[in-house]
Computed example of a mutant assay.
Amino acid sequence: MSKRSVATPREAIGTGGDDSMREPDFLQGFERRRREASAAANAEDAELWRWFSAHVEDRRIRWLHTDNKWLVTVNHKHVATDETFDEAIRAAQYKST
């Protein structure tokens, strides 16, 4: 008597194995671009907050929240106003470098 293997339903319709768990190519490309964008954003944020920390340490930056806006001064010069602290600091870095 010979032993006969029984295929699982996935194997029977050709969707089994390691290849079935792979994402479609367009999703792999999307995921790769998402990871690259995330890494770039993290690097940009790290650079911004290093700049900010250095300016705080040197007492070269000041900020004030008034009338629902953040005003940022660098080296005694007003350089940015925005509704969010994050955007005000980003604008200050851009305008002062």
Score class of each variant (00 low, 15 high):
residue 84 T to V: 05
residue 48 L to H: 08
residue 87 E to A: 11
residue 87 E to Q: 10
residue 63 W to E: 14
residue 71 L to S: 11
residue 89 I to K: 02
residue 69 K to C: 11
residue 83 E to D: 10
residue 92 A to F: 05
residue 57 E to P: 02
residue 87 E to W: 06
residue 70 W to T: 00
residue 51 W to F: 00
residue 77 K to F: 03
residue 46 A to M: 14
residue 91 A to G: 05
residue 76 H to I: 07
residue 50 R to W: 04
residue 72 V to E: 02
residue 88 A to K: 02
residue 84 T to N: 04
residue 64 L to S: 04
residue 67 D to G: 01
residue 78 H to C: 11
residue 94 Y to D: 07
residue 73 T to V: 13
residue 68 N to R: 13
residue 88 A to D: 03
residue 79 V to K: 06
residue 64 L to N: 05
residue 81 T to K: 00
residue 71 L to M: 11
residue 96 S to L: 02
residue 51 W to K: 00
residue 60 R to S: 14
residue 96 S to P: 01
residue 85 F to S: 03
residue 65 H to N: 10
residue 49 W to A: 03
residue 87 E to I: 06
residue 89 I to A: 03
residue 92 A to S: 04
residue 60 R to T: 11
residue 57 E to M: 08
residue 78 H to F: 12
residue 81 T to D: 01
residue 62 R to H: 06
residue 66 T to R: 10
residue 58 D to A: 15
residue 71 L to W: 08
residue 91 A to F: 08
residue 81 T to V: 06
residue 59 R to H: 05
residue 68 N to F: 09
residue 57 E to I: 07
residue 44 E to P: 04
residue 77 K to L: 12
residue 58 D to Y: 09
residue 79 V to R: 07
residue 66 T to D: 07
residue 74 V to M: 01
residue 90 R to M: 09
residue 61 I to R: 01
residue 69 K to G: 06
residue 73 T to Q: 10
residue 84 T to F: 05
residue 76 H to L: 13
